[in-house]
Computed example of a mutant assay.
Amino acid sequence: MVRLPLTPAELERGQRLGALLRQARGDRSILDTALDAGISPETLRKIESGRVATPAFPTIAAIAAVLGLSLDAVWADISAPARLAS
């Protein structure tokens, strides 16, 4: 199966997702957060850095649950149009 390249919008959404998760994680370590979510720390690191711009839904659901985030709120935040810098 050939995977199509991600669009600029998908890449930007991945960057916003990573930033949101980093912010929500706060002082909690990547290791603790990843283990509690049942994923590898490297996977969480890649998602937070935007290198995995379109992670699987169960992965995001597990991370969101660990961080106490609503999936509706996550989607609303990452799918909103880019904010203009003031």
Rank of each mutant, 00 (worst) to 15 (best):
D27T: 08
A37M: 11
S29H: 06
P8K: 13
P8W: 04
E12P: 07
E42M: 03
A9Q: 12
P41V: 10
L11W: 13
A24M: 08
G38P: 15
I39D: 01
A37V: 10
A37T: 11
A24V: 10
G26K: 01
L6H: 14
A9C: 11
T33G: 06
R16V: 12
A37Q: 03
R22T: 13
L21S: 13
A37H: 02
S40A: 03
G14S: 05
A34P: 01
R13T: 06
T43H: 09
S29Q: 15
L44K: 04
A19R: 11
S40H: 12
A19V: 12
S40Y: 04
D36G: 01
I30Y: 05
R13A: 08
P5Y: 05
R25P: 00
L31Q: 12
R13N: 05
L6C: 12
L31Y: 05
G14K: 00
Q23E: 03
L6G: 05
D32N: 06
A9L: 15
L17C: 10
L11V: 08
L31W: 04
R13H: 06
G26I: 00
E10W: 14
L6I: 06
T7H: 04
L21R: 04
L20S: 09
G26D: 07
G26L: 00
R16M: 06
A9K: 13
R16Q: 14
D32Y: 06
A9H: 11
S29W: 04
Q15R: 14
A37G: 09
S29N: 08
R16Y: 11
R25L: 05
E10S: 14
G26V: 00
L35R: 12
D27N: 09
Q15L: 13
T33M: 08
L31E: 11
G18S: 03
P41M: 09
I39P: 03
L17G: 14
T33V: 14
G18L: 00
R16A: 12
G14P: 01
S29K: 10
R25K: 06
P8H: 08
R16L: 13
L44C: 05
P41K: 11
Q23H: 02
T43L: 09
I30S: 00
G18A: 04
D36R: 09
Q23M: 01
L6R: 07
P8G: 07
L17H: 09
L11P: 11
E42H: 10
I39A: 01
L20T: 08
R13Y: 06
T7D: 11
R28S: 12
A37P: 03
D27C: 05
A24C: 10
T43C: 05
L31N: 13
L21Y: 07
E12R: 10
S29A: 06
L11E: 07
G14C: 03
